[in-house]
Design a protein around this nucleic acid. Sequence first.
DNA 1: AAACGATCCAACCGCACGAGC
DNA 2: AGCTCGTGCGGTTGGATCGTT
Length: 311
Amino acid sequence: MGRPPCCDKEGIKKGPWTPEEDIILVSYIQEHGPGNWRSVPINTGLMRCSKSCRLRWTNYLRPGIKRGNFTAHEEGIIVHLQSLLGNRWAAIASYLPQRTDNDIKNYWNTHLKKKLAAAANSTSSSNRHPIFADATFPSAAGGSYTVSSNSDVTQMAAIARRSPFADCPSSSYASSMDNISKLLDGFMKTNSPSPPPPPLQHYDSGYYDDVKPAVDVGGNPLLSSFDCMSGADLDCCFDVHQQHQQQQPASFMEYGGYGGGYGDESKQQLMNQAAPPLSSIEKWLFDEAAAEQVADLMDLSDGCCSVPMMF
DNA sequence: AAACGATCCAACCGCACGAGC
DNA sequence: AGCTCGTGCGGTTGGATCGTT
């Protein structure tokens, strides 16, 4: 027997969320943490179904989400993971912790699918992946990389499996409060002189223990530990994290921010992990990732960088 | 400036799955 | 064993926005 739809009750509001609703939801989650979505509308008085609350949080309000244009690097990762995993957006999103599966799915459907189709038409004689037919990928070391063979694709799959973000799903929940800050800014403008909402406090990473690792088509875990990473990769992660901390917007601090981060000890611990040399593509992936993340002020989270301490 | 089509993306829908009773 | 509950996921929709004529 199927279960009844959760949203067919009378009085359940649908459509776009208002700033007021967002604030109620954020305040509640701040206090209780995400999860137990059934109780959220009951306890908050929101006229929304539990599923709607969960989606609003995971796709929009959740800290650490990066919005805006996808970088060429992100595009490349999505294209290759899509070719490997198919339309398993949640799994793909686990490698791009600042992007939601919904965002990736939308981006694929609106941009990449067309791009691939167009590229496929013009590069039918090439064995390169169509999306890379007219693209090169500069490396931090000064060279450039092209993805040109099936072995490269396989290699990139392996890279994805050992992504520095792969095992830190909570990173996507971590420090950036941009979304909520903007939300609150707008709310304050239209509702002044109402008192400001209570400061947001640190989210315990334990709130996110239910995040599942990605698995391949055979159900095997794709996400592995850091034991294949080099010290340089870790430095990338640390450096990005440190820069991010320094460049945290005022609103983040005003609302309390989210704690966490590396200590020297944990860093050293990670540095001691075994690390084989990186291939050229791996270097491109990681170096470029770090460079772009710093340059674009990607909201790399404290949570991401604190996750390795769990190992 | 207005009309129209294209594009974007937040949100919804329905299904699947595991846990608990 | 069968049911409900809670949640995750992928596909789809429709309103808002943008671009072009």
